[in-house]
Every structure is written in C-alpha cells, then in structure tokens.
Amino acid sequence: MGTTTIPDSAEPRLAEGVRLQTDPVTGKSVLLYPEGIVELNETAHEILARCDGRTLAEIVHALAEEYDAEIDALAADARDTLSDLQRRKLVELG
C-alpha cells in the first residue's frame, strides 16, 4: 500500500465518522475520530479543507494558485499527507 502513488484523479474525502474542526483552545485544526484526536499541521489542514469532491489535481492547483507555490513540490506534499492519513483510516480516496 505504502508505495503506490495516489493518482491525480483521486477524490480524497474524510472517512466515515471523522470530523475536521478547530480546537478552540489552540486555534489549530484537529481531526476527531472514534476515541482519537489528531492535530493537523498547516499543510494537512489546507488540503483537508478542500476535500469536498474535488480531485487531487484540482486541490493542488487551487493551493498553488492561492499560495503562489511550485506545483510539483506541493503535489508531493499533498500525496505524502493524504497517504499518511489514508493509512490511519482517516481519509478515503474515491
């Protein structure tokens, strides 16, 4: 599983029962799931906030435009983050 690359056409979304919300104490983004909490870094937050039916390519494109960032580096970051969350069953790839 770990070595396969997520395709551009994948539509990542939060897994069933996983909620993305802001921790009112720290102001940071967290994922809440059955009996667990993950604090997200900024990259993860920006990606997950855009997992609304868009494809990976669309998400990366939107981020690159918004942050004026280099698209290949951004795509690699996004893939790393999503596959990590997928391994933890917090994200599903449609």
């Binding site: 921790d23 104490v25 809440l32 009996e35 909490i37």
Partner: peptide
C-alpha cells in the same frame, strides 16, 4: 466540559 477544552465525550 467543552469550555474546559474537552473535544470528545463518551
């Protein structure tokens, strides 16, 4: 509990 910072309730 929420005001204290609790995020999960069982």
């Amino acid at each position: 509990a929420a005001a204290l910072g609790v995020l999960q309730i069982g």
